[in-house]
Structure formats: structure tokens, C-alpha cells
Nucleic acid binder design. Sequence first.
DNA 1: AACGTGATCAACCGCTTGGTC
DNA 2: AGACCAAGCGGTTGATCACGT
Length: 300
Amino acid sequence: MGRSPCCDKVGLKKGPWTSEEDELLVKYINQHGHGNWRSLPKNAGLLRCGKSCRLRWTNYLRPDIKRCPFTLDEEKLVIQLHAILGNRWAAIAAQLPGRTDNEIKNLWNTHLKKRLISMGIDPQTHEPSKPITNPPASPSTRHMTQWESARLEAEARLSTESLLSHAHSSVILDSDHFLRLWNSEVGESFRKNKKKEKIVCQSPISQASTSTTKFASTSGLTVENRDDESICKTIIKSESVDANTKSDSSSSNEVEYTTESALQLLLDFPGSNDMSFLQDPIQEFSSIFQSVMSQQLNLI
DNA sequence: AACGTGATCAACCGCTTGGTC
DNA sequence: AGACCAAGCGGTTGATCACGT
């Protein structure tokens, strides 16, 4: 029993790559594409396992990789994305063109984590690391709280907007920033994480109610007379829209656009250039959301 | 110059995910 | 449904380098 090896390791080379090996790999991929990684080393004349070749290519040899040090903006973006996505390096790397998950992971572990600690911020929770009376939420739970809070606020806003929708329906639909974010890859990543955490919601209605309370307490906004059932229906609708998007391979450009624009929305929020967001991410997230809300309500 | 120590980062390991049969 | 496989992913390791003593 046990796991079968990823490749036949007998006679295979390990350790640092030589420039000759790099050359062979680049030449082969340029001519044939990588195709099947397992069979690639044999075809390319390399004494490496396919996994090693894939890693070397994706982390080092790929032509679109930036070899320059991280800029301040990139570092800031990594911190912001980490606050939302946690240790999902691949998802973070997807938002930084030319950077690999490995590179970002190393940056985080060697620089950013220490920097946050020295600022008195817990790098996992992104909260001030002073002692508190209540037990701290896990990073995933915190991320979930942020998303749930923002999502419920969007739902609350939609309810408000629905009252005004007879006159302004097209404006409202176009300006729904949060739901676009929620349906994007970033939101998807969050939802996946939620499943991983096994925070199973037997009743969507009860979850919505709990989250409503959570939101009211963290955002300082009052949410009253919420129609839980309609909220859950909207959530389910959002999920199914997302599933449809995923299953449609022809819409890859659209998915990319959605992800990019969603991130842009996140980063374009007023105050997002201010590093003070590190002091209290929940408060910051709420205030950003409130400001987006007021901007949108002004549009109506 | 020699040594110790810490920082950095490429590469590895093993688990998870998603697709296919 | 579940077995199998390829690829993806995140945690960890270890070689190398820089710097201080």
C-alpha cells in the first residue's frame, strides 16, 4: 500500500539545475510545449522527474517571470491579498503578473511576516497581536467573517435598492461591486476555503441570521427586518452563476476579466493605499464597504 | 582568515484536487 | 461509485550567501 512515487526515481538527478539542463528544458518546451510533464524529461533528454521539470519551468525558466526584487506596491498587494486569501499562494500569485507562488511564499516567510510582527500585527490574523479577552478567531474564520459581513451588507443594500429599483434598476445592477467580487475568483477562493474549514451550514437561513448579527456588530451598521430567505436564494444564485462560469471553458477570458476587475475594485477602494488598514482589517473592510455604499447610493 | 549565525530562495515532498475511465 | 493518474499546491528543507565576531 502507500502512495505510488510520482515517477521512477532510480537514476534521476536531484538538487540544483545546471545551465545545460535549463537549456534542454527551455529548448524542448519552446519547440513542443510542455505537454505531459511525466513524459517530458525522457523526451527532452533530461534525467529529472516530471515534477522537477514542471517546478523549474514554472518557478524559474518561464519567460514571463520577473527576476527583479518586489516593489513596495507588490509587497503591499501581497499583504492585502493575504488578509483576504490567507496562505493560498497560488491565488495571490495569480494577481501579481510575473510572480510565482513560490516567490511570494518566500517573500512572505522571509520579509513580510517579520515586518508585520515588528509592527505588532499577527501575520496570520492581520490583527494587532496584543492579548485579548476572547479567544482569537482562526485566519479562515476571520476571512469568512469579512466576506460574510461584506456580502450581507451587499444584500442589505440590494434590499434598499429594490425599493428604488423602479426608477433606477439599470444603474443599480451595473454598480453592484460587491457581488461581482463575490462571484470572482477571489470570492470563489474564499468559498472554497469555507468548505475546507468544514464550517457546515445545515440551514442557510440560520447562517445568514448569525452572519447578520456578526456584521451588525463589526460594521456598526444597523440591519433590520432582513428577509433571510431571499438572502439565501441570492447566495445560491450567486453560487450557481459561479459554477456555470467555471464549467464553461469557452468563457476563460470572461473569468480573467472578472478576477482582474474584482481585484481592481478591491484595491481601488478609498483608503486602500493607506497602510493603516493593517491595524484593523475588519474595521477597514467595513469602512471601505460603507464608503463604496455611499458612493453608489449617491449615484441613485 | 576562519568560524558562526542568520537570511534567502530554489527545490523537494507529500497531500489535495480534478479529470477520466 | 470509486480507482487511477496528472497536475497543482503549500509546507519544509537544505545549499548558498552575507555579515558579524
